[in-house]
């Protein structure tokens, strides 16, 4: 006995397939999202479609810092109040936002949009190290501050950027790490505490 095929709409299938580009979205969640958009929230779906198209047409990478922007340069790179001799290197726009929130840094940035990840085949070309090199050697920058994550991948990234820039005579520093502010040793994880011990400083 042959079963009657389940009726489908091609547009629905394409939407489900397209939604799977989102991180962490498998076939099941993609289907749920598609039903939600087409059945329960068509106005929201329309807005999503329009803003996605708009973002794709207008958002690009800042020519100086590589962060997302709509113009040639982002507002931060265009600002005259920033110290243009300092360049802080972060992995993501979210990291840049965090450093900005501290209000204790007034220099410029470069956003890698990733990190070296040798096991995933992510190399220097994928994170624009050639563009970083051009930016860091443009004559304005005097010190580069490496604020990549304290993961093995972030450390490897920091190491190679440091090598690349030091060999060209640029001063390079790495943000310090250790026990969090207000952190009681009893509740700090062992990895952090062991790093803090190794990187202790004289008083």
């Amino acid at each position: 006995m042959t079963k009657e095929p389940v009726p489908t709409a091609q547009g629905l299938e394409r939407l489900v397939e397209a939604l799977r580009v989102l991180p962490g979205v498998g076939p099941k969640s993609a289907q749920r999202m598609a039903y939600q958009l087409l059945q329960r929230d068509r106005a929201g779906a329309d807005q999503l479609a329009v803003s996605l198209r708009h973002a794709l047409d207008t958002v690009r990478h800042c020519a100086k810092c590589n962060n997302f922007t709509e113009g040639e340069l982002c507002s931060l790179c265009e600002s005259s109040r920033r110290d243009s001799t300092l360049l802080c290197i972060v992995e993501t726009p979210a990291d840049l936002a965090m450093v900005e929130q501290t209000s204790s840094y007034s220099g410029m940035y470069f956003v890698l949009m990733g990190r070296l990840s040798p096991l995933d085949g992510v190399g220097p070309r994928d994170i624009g190290l050639d563009r970083l090199l051009a930016r860091a050697t443009d004559g304005e920058v005097q010190e580069v501050i490496l604020a990549t994550n304290f993961t093995n991948e972030g450390e490897a990234t920091a190491h190679y950027i440091a090598e690349m820039l030091r060999s060209r005579g640029i001063r390079v520093s790495r943000i310090a790490r250790g026990v969090p502010l207000g952190g009681e040793l009893e509740y700090v994880d062992a990895g952090t505490l062991s790093q803090a011990l190794m990187e202790r400083r004289a008083l």
Binding site: L116, P118, L119, G121, V122, G123, P124, L129, L133
Partner: peptide
């Protein structure tokens, strides 16, 4: 190996 090709790229920096 991914690590080998990434290392080769890094040597060109």
């Amino acid at each position: 190996l991914h690590t080998r090709s990434v290392l080769l790229e890094l040597q060109d920096l």
